[in-house]
Nucleic acid binder design. Structure first.
Lengths: 145, 145
DNA sequence: TCCTTTGTTGCAACGATTTGCATCTACTCT
DNA sequence: AGAGTAGATGCAAATCGTTGCAACAAAGGA
């Protein structure tokens, strides 16, 4: 039994099926150190099973996202990145000037999430945000022009 | 002189040029009541000048976005929507179950923005967020299964 | 184990957005 | 007003992600 058995149960219980393709996509996501794009995952899975289709990857990612096993984040530069949610929660501050990326602790967003839940009744999926703006350095530089 | 003259100056000062196409795209955005997709804008501009190309619309939107005159928001269902930033700031709570959209007052995000600026020094562009999650109704429904 | 149901797959076609490139034009300087 | 330059345009082709569909296979029950 692999280390994905728990995940498999979660999928089964919600009426989904476990297929070899899904298993490979899951493994790819779980064992990745950080963010993966759909294309990254596609490449990895293709190495083991060359007949997978990119649409299968996207459809599986959609399912996993719906079940909140993974998070999807649009970090500017084109393609979205996906990450296993169970890993440490964190967010990104992306500078629109120098494109630098800084980490933002989850506590900042956690407060926002619980406030919204308390006051509006909406349960926000605050797993992985990308917030755009100007970093401290570029702010200084821009101000002195 | 039209009511866009101020915007024109902002563009010029940052090394951009004002063209008839851009003017029409600007007008379309400024006079829209709410969110517009790139295709909406394309249609509107084409009514006045049938030779515009959709790529011109996208390129202009990219420029306006960089200058923070408009905001781009991905609200699930496929295409991105654009909105004139000067209009009332607001955000969206989008239910991943029923796809319903609720408005979220800007004050919630404003606090987050100023806190990040104060503590991390990063100036977040919190213009128009789309936050996904479960609305109160769907939360209740899901819990009772 | 065999059958049925229902979700999943691969493929191809599609829609949305981006990019390369030659041409054109708004703006600046003279 | 005329010339030069950098940025913008239109077109076509490429890319990225999604969708329809027929064939397939996993899960559950007889």
């Amino acid at each position: 039994m692999s280390c994905e058995s728990e995940t498999i149960d979660v999928l089964r219980e919600s009426g989904h099926k476990m297929t070899p393709q899904r298993m490979m996509i899951l493994t790819s996501l779980r064992h990745a150190s950080g963010h993966l794009s759909a294309a990254d995952i596609f490449e990895q899975v293709k190495a083991a099973y060359p007949y997978v289709d990119i649409s299968t990857v996207y459809r599986t990612l959609t399912v996993l996202k719906e079940m909140r096993l993974i998070s999807e984040t649009h970090m500017g530069g084109g393609d979205a990145t996906f990450e296993w949610v169970a890993s440490e929660r964190h967010h990104h501050l992306i500078c629109r000037h120098c494109n630098g990326v800084t980490l933002l602790d989850h506590t900042y967003l956690e407060k926002l999430g619980s406030q919204i839940e308390r006051e509006v009744g909406f349960h926000a999926d605050i797993d992985h945000f990308a917030i755009f703006g100007l970093c401290a350095d570029c702010k200084r530089e821009t101000a002195s022009n």
